[in-house]
């Protein structure tokens, strides 16, 4: 680059150096490491090329297959949870009307968002406590002593206890998305339908739901991507147990790397999950593009 050009553009590139330094050092470089070391046996100090062995081991491992099955359950229930409950709450708020009531309910539903997510997880862990947990105490006070159990310690209930965490699943971004979208729906069509004698249920199913399809798509894809990466609550509450009852691929990645120092194998699981997420993202971009 000659002096004149450097003078003209130099400052621009100079100002961009900090951003690029950070992104390359802490995002692109680790990403390249992940791809490379997914083909190696790696203990952070030395690594040995083993081709596709990590990937082969992954898919022939019974625990990993169990993790994929659990993941399917987590993801499907996550999508259902992220749409039905927030949508129902938002619709009901508009149904009862009254600006003051609307405000009170909306504020109430998002109140738990004031607390760090980990606090909510820990409070739910306390609720599942076998002795002084809220859930068993409720059952005891209704005389349902035989229903009480260590919810997180029982192989038959642990997975569903994790899925039920956060019930009724309203507080959060999805609720705000649905609440805002319903508020922005054009009232003309709805008024016209009401004049033609449509009842509330018909307005909901024939007008609201079709108009909210873009929001459903957005929430679904974000939820699936989040679901594949979500293992903090598993790590904190059950560590994947009891046995393999609550394990998923993400926590297996964590355990491979930080539990048994198999960083290459951990990288391979990370890459596999990344490819799934990438495919979903591309699919999503194409689907959303044809819509608008």
């Amino acid at each position: 680059m000659n002096t004149a050009r450097w003078k003209k553009y130099g400052t621009s590139y100079l100002f961009l150096i900090p951003s690029f330094a950070f992104v390359f050092a802490f995002l692109y470089y680790p990403m390249i490491l992940a791809f490379f070391h997914s083909f190696t046996k790696w203990n952070l100090v030395t690594s040995e090329w083993i081709g596709f062995d990590n990937y082969r081991n992954m898919f022939s491992d019974a625990i990993f297959r169990k993790g994929m099955l659990n993941q399917l359950i987590y993801t499907v229930t996550d999508v259902v949870k992220s749409i039905i409950f927030p949508l129902a709450a938002a619709e009901l708020i508009y149904l009862i009307g009254g600006s003051r009531l609307k405000y009170i309910f909306r504020t109430g539903f998002i109140l738990p968002m004031l607390f760090p997510g980990i606090v909510t997880i820990l409070l739910w862990q306390n609720m599942y406590d076998p002795t002084n947990g809220l859930i068993n105490q409720v059952l005891l006070s209704f005389g349902l002593d035989s229903w009480t159990r260590p919810w997180l310690g029982d192989e038959n209930t642990a997975l569903w206890a994790l899925i039920a965490l956060g019930f009724p699943f309203i507080s959060g971004l999805n609720f705000l998305i649905f609440y805002a979208s319903i508020g922005n729906l054009s009232q003309d069509q709805i008024e016209a339908a009401k004049i033609d004698g449509a009842n509330g249920w018909q307005v909901l199913t024939r007008i609201h739901l079709p108009l909210l399809i873009p929001q459903f798509k957005l929430v679904t894809i974000l939820t699936i991507i989040g679901s594949l990466q979500d293992f903090v609550k598993i790590l904190v509450m059950t560590d994947g147990g009891p046995g393999t009852a609550t394990i998923n691929p993400a926590i297996l990645m964590y355990k491979a790397a930080f539990g048994s120092s198999e960083y290459g194998y951990g990288s391979a699981i990370g890459v596999a999950l990344f490819l799934v997420i990438l495919a979903l993202t591309i699919f999503n971009l194409k689907v959303l593009k044809t819509d608008h």
Partner: peptide
Amino acid sequence: IPSLLTIVPLYAT
């Protein structure tokens, strides 16, 4: 880039 992919190699870095 999902953060999950970079957890292990970022720790190495």
